[in-house]
């Protein structure tokens, strides 16, 4: 059985407009799926719907099973029980993903305390481990730092540490590298890639960036205006795009690469 199975998911706003329209996909345990699409295509809403945390005013229909729990219709209590231990999210903007008034250590401590019941020394060492895992040197100092004292890359590492601290089986990464410098972006992608691989965590990676998706995902789904227009293994999608929109994505990525090549040679 899939860890996450989404069947005919439709998200509507109060006016009844479909923001996500009849979206279906599945992520098996340990698998890596990508949702690719431009801003406004409904990818982030899909991620929120999966966790059953749509913003007020939006309603979802269809069927979402997260580890077998119906995330649309099940009572809040069951959904909460499914959410924490199974899934975690890393957000796009590391600035709003961390509470500005809380030290990095305390933020990571929150879920660990709640889900693993850790206290005192055990909690402190778990925080240290979590920070070490995301390759943050000087973990002691970082644990004591407020978000504004950290760089964007460090903040995103803290956010990843927070998401992975409780060993979720599914990590949802919502454009985790979009707000970062290109060099930092590459480091964070490597980090995610490695962590997910060593732990067998399933990954749902959301991005507008085809090369980024190619790097970390296996199966991919291209979203446009709330609909999935193309699905398949990322290599096939890039080699033989079928939908015109996917072709545009692939072409523009190619042109970008070609331009880089040319400038490099001159």
């Amino acid at each position: 059985m899939s860890l996450l199975a989404v069947e005919g998911l439709t998200v509507r706003d109060q006016a009844g407009r479909a923001l996500v329209d009849d979206v279906s996909f599945a992520v098996a345990a340990g698998d890596r799926a990508g949702l690719i699409g431009e801003s406004g295509s409904g990818k982030s809403l899909t991620a929120l719907a999966v966790t059953g945390l749509l913003p007020p005013g939006l309603s979802a229909t269809g069927d979402i099973r997260l580890d077998g729990v119906d995330m649309i219709r099940a009572p809040e209590k069951q959904r909460t029980a499914a959410r924490g231990p199974v899934a975690a999210i890393v957000f796009q903007e590391p600035l709003t993903a961390l509470d500005p008034l809380m030290t990095a250590g305390r933020q990571i401590a929150g879920p660990l305390r709640r889900l693993h019941g850790l206290r005192g020394a055990a909690l402190r060492s778990a925080i240290g481990e979590a920070l070490a895992e995301v390759r943050l040197t000087d973990a002691e100092r970082i644990a004591r730092s407020y978000p504004h004292e950290l760089s964007g890359g460090q903040r995103q590492r803290v956010a990843i540490a927070m998401a992975l601290a409780c060993r979720p089986r599914l990590l949802i990464a919502d454009e985790p590298t979009t707000a970062l410098d290109v060099t930092v972006q590459a480091e964070i992608l490597d980090l995610l890639d490695r962590l997910v691989a060593t732990r067998g965590t399933a990954l749902l990676f959301i991005t507008h960036d085809l090369p980024v998706a190619a790097r970390v995902t296996r199966d991919t789904h291209v979203l446009r205006d709330g609909r999935i227009v193309e699905s398949g293994p990322i290599a096939d999608v890039i080699a033989r795009p079928e939908h015109p929109y996917t072709r545009t994505l692939v072409d523009s990525a190619r042109r970008f690469d070609a331009a880089l090549e040319r400038t490099g040679r001159d």
């Binding site: 945390l53 924490g84 975690a88 999210i89 879920p111 709640r114 956010a159």
Partner: peptide, 14 residues
């Protein structure tokens, strides 16, 4: 409430 850290906390079941 619109900030991501609230969503993150809710996902963690806090």
């Amino acid at each position: 409430l619109g900030r991501d850290y609230i969503t993150a906390a809710r996902i963690a079941g806090i």
